[in-house]
Write a protein that binds this DNA or RNA. Structure first.
Length: 595
RNA sequence: GGUCCGGUAGCUCAACUGGAUAGAGCAUCAGAUUUCUAAUCUGAGGGUUCGGGGUUCGAUUCCCUGCCGGAUCACCA
């Protein structure tokens, strides 16, 4: 039974019957806490067909529903708002359908496939806080789409070639003395990142020397020996010079080993990896064909452009005058390749920061001009930057927050607070370790996902390690508490079946509040999918946990003398725990049995 | 300069896409553990929703305008 559908159809019937005219949309919203009821119908829009004032309209509909629907037990009208109270038997039925459906929260398969790209790092340095937001977001949106009934293909494109990795290679060759992850004990991505920093330092020093010897800043930048070395390596790489390719493979290999460990700890995964070194030449053919078809045009110097002025944008280069590809060319090729690899996908989602909005706008327009009708189902999941209290993250200024370090810090903080609470009695070291990890990462993921992805957000380290209030651990804790109740019920040999639930005759307000939230879970999943927003789920899970804690506080379950009521409350607790678990899973967060 | 985002309590964020007296968390203050886990719960204070116009039964939400912050506008990625 879907409560929302049921109620809407009852209201439709009422409206049609009372005003002898139907209405296509109903404005149904949760009732404010200060009024009685659970669902509120906004009646202002109905005045057009009722030809009555809003209060009178609400009253007539309310009367009808109480008399005829069988599910509305009471109503009250405040201004144009019709507040409805549902009969307790309906709430009990809601609980029954949910506990008897193990797949509640998984919408039926809709036969559609979608590709979601996220992460997509450069291979010259370790992942940082910005990547964490990206990865958690991409992963979570993938989970949300799966729950909505889609088949999801998670992919990324690894930017493994170009001047950035050559910089690390040049610095390593100059001053690395053959250092390896094994010899240094450094994680591979951090080792390569170390040489990227060394490159930058050396480069700057060389520039100031050159400026001191009379060169302009621009000239110095070009002539600095280390930069010339990196540029030369890029040329050699493109010419497939064996030694250069070998070094490139070695250093990228170190990075991948490092990334694998980081992804594993983050709990994210990918179905297929695309590498820029494989795809950067793609798209060139397409662009040349586009010139022949008259979609693109060539300038005198031989460069190829697309004219987007009729779409309110500028002209954009697609092939350089020397015939080489740019980023856009590659992305055109990669997009087409992906639709060949996964012919059933209807579209793809690109999880990329909002600084690339213009790029994707252009990309989708070009694909559209090329005649790919899937282009209109491509979506740039654009998210805001993560700021620090000290301002923007700047890798050159050393203010980046490293992903590995941050996850470790969160783990340790979880451990510190757990020990402080004295919650580890009878817990093995191994279980304790898993618990700290679960809590630490739960806090971090929740912190980054609770904000609307579109918005720029502030990462305050002292706030992110909070385990109280609007946090992941608060919700995990609620789950653990419920599990304790379920264990106790088990030990008392309390088992619930349908007839027990139906024997309950009256509910407490706290129970109805919880059931209302439970009944709206699937709508929240749809909303989150439509908006590409894990924040919808984060807010929902928090509301649910809060509602349960209020219930938990006010009603001691095992003191109840009426056995049917007691069983009802156990079943209710079970349902809440399940939905907490499922919602947090949509955010990539695990829940503990005890904490 | 053009285009696009954003501005809500001291701080970090919500507000069901135009609905009720704008809500949470943190922080501050005051309370609640012979009870199923106090990482919890209850209560208090805290607002010109950046300013100014407009649209209508009704605006944080839509339109215009000004101010502030950010992104972007490369033969970079």
């Amino acid at each position: 039974m879907n409560l929302d559908h049921l109620l809407r159809s009852e209201i439709q019937k009422a409206v049609t019957s009372v005003f002898s005219q139907s209405v296509d949309t109903l404005q149904l919203q949760p009732t404010n806490a200060e009024f009685e009821g659970s669902h509120t119908l906004v009646c202002f829009p109905l005045t057009k067909i009722s030809r009555k004032g809003p209060e009178e309209t609400a009253k007539v509909v309310g009367e009808y529903l109480v008399a005829n629907s069988g599910i509305v037990s009471k109503y009250n009208v405040v201004k144009g708002f019709l507040n409805l109270s549902l009969s307790d038997s309906i709430w009990i039925e809601v609980l029954h359908t949910i506990v008897s459906n193990p797949d509640y929260g998984q919408l039926p398969a809709n036969g559609q496939e979608v590709m979601i790209e996220y992460s997509s790092p450069n291979t010259n340095k370790p992942l940082h806080l910005g990547h964490l937001r990206n990865n958690f977001l991409g992963y979570s949106v993938s989970e949300i789409y799966k729950a909505s009934g889609y088949t999801v293909h998670k992919v990324q494109i690894i930017n493994d070639r170009g001047i950035h990795i050559c910089k690390s290679m040049a610095a390593w060759k100059l001053s690395g003395n053959g250092e390896t992850p094994q010899s240094s004990g450094l994680k591979g991505d951090h080792l390569v990142g170390k040489y990227y920093v060394i490159f930058d330092k050396t480069y700057k020093a060389q520039i100031s020397d050159l400026i001191a010897s009379g060169l302009s800043e621009e000239e110095a930048g070009k002539q600095a020996p280390i930069m010339q070395m990196a540029s030369e390596m890029l040329r050699q790489w493109e010419q497939k010079d064996p030694a250069t390719i070998e070094l490139w493979k070695t250093m990228n290999g170190w990075v991948y080993t490092g990334f694998d460990a980081t992804y594993k700890r983050m709990g994210v995964d990918f179905e297929k990896l695309y590498y820029e070194s494989d795809t950067y030449l793609l798209g060139k053919e397409i662009v040349l064909q586009g010139v022949e078809k008259g979609i693109f045009f060539k300038k005198e110097d031989g460069s190829i452009w697309v004219d987007l002025t009729s779409d309110g944008l500028d002209q954009k280069v697609l092939l350089r005058s020397d015939g080489t590809s740019v980023y856009m060319t590659q992305d055109i090729g990669t997009a087409i390749l992906r639709f060949k690899d996964f012919p059933k996908i209807s579209g793809q989602v690109y999880t990329v920061g909002n600084e690339q909005e213009y790029h994707f706008k252009v990309l989708f327009l070009i694909l559209n001009k090329l005649g790919y009708d899937w282009a209109k189902h491509c979506f740039h999941l654009s998210y805001g930057m993560v700021d620090l209290p000290t301002g923007k993250m700047k890798s050159r200024e050393g203010t980046v927050v490293d992903a590995d370090e941050l996850m470790e810090d969160m783990h340790q903080e979880a451990e510190r607070q757990t020990r402080e609470h004295g919650k580890l009695e009878g817990v093995s070291d191994q279980d304790a370790h898993m618990l700290f990890e679960m809590i630490g990462l739960g806090a971090l993921k929740f912190f980054l996902l609770k904000v609307d992805p579109k918005k720029r957000m502030l990462f305050d380290p002292s706030e992110s390690i909070q385990l109280q209030g609007f946090t992941g651990p608060f919700i995990q804790y609620t789950h653990a508490r419920i599990k304790a109740i379920l264990r106790k019920a088990e030990s008392l040999d309390i088992h619930v079946n349908a007839s027990d639930l139906k024997a309950v005759t009256s509910l407490e307000p706290a129970e109805r509040d919880g059931l209302y939230l439970i009944s709206s879970f699937e709508n929240k999943i749809k909303e989150a999918a439509k908006d590409y927003s894990p924040a919808v789920i984060a807010n929902y899970a928090f509301e649910l946990a809060k509602a349960y804690n209020q219930f938990y506080q006010s009603i001691p379950i095992f003191n109840e003398e009426n056995p049917a009521k007691l069983k009802f409350r156990v079943a209710f607790s079970y349902a809440v725990a399940n939905i907490i678990k499922r919602s947090l899973k949509l955010l990539g967060i695990e829940v503990p049995e005890r904490m």
